[in-house]
Amino acid sequence: MEISPDQIVYWEWRFVTVNATLVYSWVVIVLLGAGAWFITRNLTVGPDISRWQNGLEVLVGQILTQIETTGLRHPKRYLPFIGTLFIFIVTCNILAVVPGYVAPTASVTTPIALAMCVFVAVPVYGIMNRGLKAYFKRYIRPTPLMLPFTIIGEISRTVALGIRLFGNMMSGNLIVAILLSLAPLLFPVAMQAFGLLIGVIQAYVFAVLALVYIASGARAHQNNGEPAPGDAEPSSAV
């Protein structure tokens, strides 16, 4: 029994390996890109809009609202990053109900890679908003002694972000696999349903945490180096 989709290798040449993680990620990317293109090629402005357009408008509108609630001034600037994180993870997780499909997020590589993107995006957005000097000043406030702790905190929370998603998704797959061997009927179906719920929640948690990190980086200097209210991880995180 494979624990990680990384271990399902379809093609290999030297260090280049095409495994299930990559293949299913591509599938998801193609699915999302084609779907977005298909739906948005005939957008209307009038009162009569298609259901797909309406659904997408609700989704995008909700993501914008979510970004606004963290207090960021220009929600549309963060929409592509945060929105894509959420949509990608949700799609990866939900497709797990398709037989034969393995969620890329069940491999530790994908969540870590996404967490690395967040890790880079936080200073990028912070510098975009506040400028280079002002952003890096937050690392030595209130005193330069705090610098190592701040760095360690940034790295550890990034790792935690990735591991959290990976753990949840992998456990879901694992539980289904174990239960299939114990009780092949009905019970695994319920666990699959739970898996769907957990997948959506984890996608939301990942996106919101990324948003909070970015917001804390962007707003840190407005509070003279004091930790922003959203700087700490929400207690609701699973």
């Binding site: 280049v16 495994n19 890329p104 890679a113």
Partner: peptide, 12 residues
């Protein structure tokens, strides 16, 4: 898998 790691970042 570091190759996959990089590829996933690019994919994203």
């Amino acid at each position: 898998d570091w190759f996959t790691f990089g590829a996933q970042i690019v994919n994203f």
